[in-house]
Design a binder for these strands. Structure first.
Lengths: 342, 342
DNA sequence: TGTTAGCACTCGTCGAATACGAGTGCTAAT
DNA sequence: ATTAGCACTCGTATTCGACGAGTGCTAACA
């Protein structure tokens, strides 16, 4: 167990390093007016903390830097809620006060404000479309041999895709077919749709319509169109201002990662609904081995999305956590009041 | 007018500098076996070319580098079509040979191949949605007080948006309304829709439906949903491999630009349908003042999109132009065969 | 026994001095 | 008109020493 003095020192080191990006030395610590002991004592304690794995040195003789374990301890035990300036609070709330035209717009702006306020990179993951339920099928013929299939979900999301009509398809069959589909499959979630189309609808349609098989194939593609929710980014380039990204190679790896929605989705998905912090190697990805990711989810009922803020491990955890909490509450609230689409 | 010898020298300088990124000196030029004159002669010619503004020096005494004017002259007069390896040609054609599931997919893959083959950044601008014509309106009620409005265009594109139903709206009016809209407004282009909704449809609807005004408002929003065509990117990070982007500031500016669809759209839109090259400051944008942009458009009839490839001014113009030409032909072909949506 | 002052030592950074080499411009010879 | 020869320029890489921030250890102190 750490002594009280060690806790104090660890806290100062993390706080100082976070704001200055420079290794912090014993003298610097002793200058704080609530630190009552001498640099020499601090050096001794620091040596102990280093032995315990909470601190590191960049070279034999320069100040200490928190290790991953140090950050981990800090976020687990030393985090204190921070007071935000009224100005910043109102900046966050301004998004929610305005009449929300559409959920998508709301989310984009939230992401922008988050990355402005934190100076880090923000990723917002939209709700998982696959969970939504079918509200209505629609097929609109475009020409002799093509049509667009449309699926509207219960929350107003619209999936659509153009497909080629099979040879010998009778255009007047469309209405019949759409009716059958709507009868049978309303309320089925998109993720189940694939199966139900094949098991239930196919048999019935075959009885009525000549070329059902080909059309069903196309419909199945519509259903699986968007495998995962949308991803919104903000402040991608903020990372370039961080001194730890002065290395072009790191920049490249980071940017490449941020260009791949699917990877981002996996890496930044929260594991439960609280606010979570993953530090450095805990992220299990080379491109962000020196980054921390703070995630939270928001939403109401089935309609859940999540926020991720990515910064260097040397990031202002206290501030980000408080901002994040404000934002997730605001978003949840706004989304449950008007249950719009994404 | 430039002498034959000067042309030769300019050509060698551009070609060499493009591939090596190093200023090229007189000795290096004289080594080429089709160059018959001595380094000293070359030095004299180079001094003249510099005076004419085609070449520059990086410092008083090191090799020459093409100036913007030099590149301009090169692309205008010295460009020779290049022979591509059979391997590369087949790589391009492979995209078009496969059965195209959807135009969007086709375009994404084209962009990827372009940036792979060129090692530069590719931007593909989709067709301008605003030109498409309304094929069908649809309104699907979601709950007591909300519904989603859908517009299908003649090429299969689908625009949609959730809107709040006005107080006292009679759900059974929806069908009536949709019928009127489809009757009156089929074939109207999206860009005209705004106007026509207001001038023609509104009056008619008012006669039949109590709360028409509010609904029309929402429909107008749907129509203007996507102001401009979609933008697809590939190889954004390729630029980081170029030695001229070893400067973090340039990287930041470039990346920030590439995150703003609307700016990208303006900068990279081709002015006519041929292959165009804009060099350095001709782009009128600080973030790409050391870049060249090569654009071309593709498509059939109204369904036009465009390709832009962005690289450093020191870019392999010959190669890019030939690749671009292959690609634009391929895309035009593929799109006119199946007139799919974007 | 815990704390602190003092001091030798380490290491990274910065600036000056130096050597090197690639390339030019000019002059004079062909 | 062309070219060989040569002095000169300038960027890069390397070395060296001075400087300073910071440590670890020892010995003195409360």
């Amino acid at each position: 167990m750490l002594t009280n003095r060690q806790l104090q020192i660890l806290q100062v080191i993390v706080d100082d390093f976070v704001s200055s990006a420079q290794p912090v030395g014993s003298r610097q610590i002793s200058k704080k007016d609530w630190i009552t002991f001498s640099p020499a004592t601090i050096r001794n304690e620091m040596a102990d903390l280093e032995e315990l794995g909470f601190l590191e040195k960049t070279h034999t003789s320069s100040g200490r830097v928190p290790s991953e374990k140090g950050y981990r301890f800090y976020v687990d035990h030393l985090l204190q809620p921070q007071i935000m300036s009224a100005d910043e609070v109102s900046q966050i709330q301004s998004v929610f006060k305005r009449q929300i035209v559409e959920a998508e717009q709301l989310i984009k702006e939230s992401a922008n404000i988050l990355s402005e306020l934190t100076t880090y990179t923000t990723v917002l993951l939209g709700p998982d479309v696959q969970r939504h339920k079918v509200k209505r099928f629609q097929i609109v013929p475009l020409s002799e041999d093509s049509a667009v299939a449309i699926i509207v979900t219960d929350n107003g999301h619209v999936e659509n895709r153009v497909f080629t009509l099979p040879e010998g398809f009778n255009p007047s069959d469309i209405e019949k077919m759409v009716n059958i589909l709507n009868d049978r499959l309303s309320g089925v979630s998109l993720q189940d749709l694939h199966l139900k189309l094949e098991l239930e609808a196919l048999a019935v349609l075959r009885q009525h319509i000549h070329t059902a098989d080909a059309v069903i194939q196309s419909l199945m593609q519509v259903a699986s169109g968007q495998k995962e929710g949308k991803v919104y980014y903000a402040g991608k380039t903020n990372m370039l201002n961080q001194p730890e990204f002065h290395d072009l190679n790191k920049v490249r790896m980071f940017m490449e990662l941020m260009d791949k929605d699917s990877q981002v989705q996996n890496l930044f998905k929260p594991l439960d609904s609280g606010i979570q912090i993953r530090i450095g190697s805990e992220n299990n990805h080379l491109a962000i081995e020196n980054c921390s990711v703070i995630t939270a989810s928001f939403g109401a009922g089935e309609e859940r999305g999540s926020i991720a803020i990515i910064g260097p491990t040397r990031m202002d955890y206290q501030r980000v956590v408080t901002i994040m909490d404000l934002m997730r509450r605001g978003l949840s609230n706004a989304l449950s009041h008007r249950n719009d689409s994404l």
